[in-house]
Simulated assay, not measured.
Amino acid sequence: MTGPLSTRFAEVFGVRHPIVQGGMQWVGRAELAAAVSSAGGLGMITALTQPTPKDLAAEIERCRKLTDQPFGVNLTILPTITPPPYDEYRRVIVDSGVTIVETAGSNPEPHMAMFREHGVRIIHKCTSVRHALKAERVGVDAVSIDGFECAGHPGEDDIPGLVLIPAATARLSIPVLASGGFADGRGLVAALALGADGINMGTRFMCTAESPIHDSVKKAIVAGDERGTELIFRQLRNTARVAGNAVSREVVEILRGGGAFPDIAQLVAGSRGRKVFEDGDLDAGIWSVGMAQGLIDDVPTCAELLDRIVTEAVDIIENRLRTRTAVA
């Protein structure tokens, strides 16, 4: 199953277009993952959005009823005192017949034996070349490399994609997805030019018709620009890029003034961020969004979006780049 921009990633993972909807807490649900996959990309259900492994099994089944195309499950590995029951989530993924997993956060190695045993292909999301090389050594099938522009956790090195992506692709032999700041066909062409085998988008897919978040959030993304984010948790060495709002600015000021995590714990509670997406109150809590919001000005269906991205990318490659080369 190939499309006009088939790459190693598209061929290995069985999708028409080298475009992935990355895992997003409270956003990566069946309706969005199915819409992306049906449109030729690779959709992802976010495992930890589901409160229990049993709920994840039901969500996977719901996705299967919405699409007959490949989709995956994101499993974010959190370094917490009371971790989720990862062994149970892994078992559900395997027993449900899912064959693609996106891991993120900590080292995926402890989770790989079961996935490997059952033929699950693994994409590991990371924010540095050194972590990508380690992921390759432990046997993942592809990596998604996040530049500093991304939503969520960009790491602590502050390396933008224009440098990070070619630095990674020069040293890795497995397929690489470029992530952070991608929203259109221009970005896809740029990623391919930098050596990547596709792109991983989060913020752009948040702002689609099938995205299961409140319309007020989608309108805020459309109205926002590339300056409308805040970097929180910098002093805690756990930097996160989130939307600029009353809560995130308060968090920044508290930590800048010498505060510690207990001083902000109530402000950054996940339940508050969930209320943003469900109720549309943009100041209810912190919520992730990337600098790519500055490139977003509409709320298309996933099918319209992927068709537009691929069409634009092909046009750039076949017409504009060739024409300019010929003129030069």
Rank of each mutant, 00 (worst) to 15 (best):
T103H: 05
I199L: 03
L236Q: 07
I296Y: 15
P108I: 04
I254M: 08
D197A: 10
F277R: 02
E59H: 12
V251C: 04
A151R: 08
D95A: 15
M206C: 01
L56N: 07
G155P: 06
V140H: 09
G41H: 12
G97N: 08
R324Y: 11
A303F: 01
V129F: 05
G14R: 09
I232V: 13
G155H: 04
F71Q: 10
G285Q: 02
S211H: 02
G72L: 05
E230L: 02
L231A: 14
L177T: 03
P83H: 08
E149I: 09
A240G: 08
V101P: 12
A284L: 01
V268L: 02
Q25M: 13
C126M: 06
N107F: 06
G180Y: 07
E226M: 11
R237P: 00
L66T: 10
A303T: 09
A223H: 07
L56W: 04
N200L: 15
E59S: 14
Q25T: 12
T52L: 07
V163L: 14
I296Q: 12
N245K: 03
F277N: 02
K218D: 00
P160W: 08
V276C: 02
S106F: 02
D184G: 13
G270Q: 09
S6H: 03
V327C: 10
V20L: 04
P70H: 13
L172E: 03
V163C: 00
V129Q: 07
R249W: 03
G28M: 08
E318I: 08
A135Y: 14
V251Q: 06
R116D: 11
G202F: 09
L321E: 12
F13W: 00
D87L: 11
T49N: 03
G28E: 00
N74M: 05
A39C: 09
G195V: 07
V12K: 08
Y89S: 06
E61N: 15
K65N: 13
S179M: 11
A190E: 12
D158S: 11
R322I: 12
S288Q: 02
F9V: 04
A30Q: 11
F205E: 03
P166L: 02
T203E: 11
Y89N: 05
D307W: 01
E11R: 08
A151E: 13
L78D: 11
K275S: 08
T49A: 02
L321T: 12
G290A: 05
V247H: 03
H153K: 13
S271I: 09
T99G: 05
T169D: 10
A243L: 07
V222Y: 12
P108G: 03
A209N: 00
V252R: 07
G147F: 04
E31G: 03
T203W: 08
P53F: 00
M44C: 11
T46L: 11
E312I: 06
R116W: 09
A265G: 05
R241N: 10
I159W: 12
A313I: 07
L255N: 06
I81L: 13
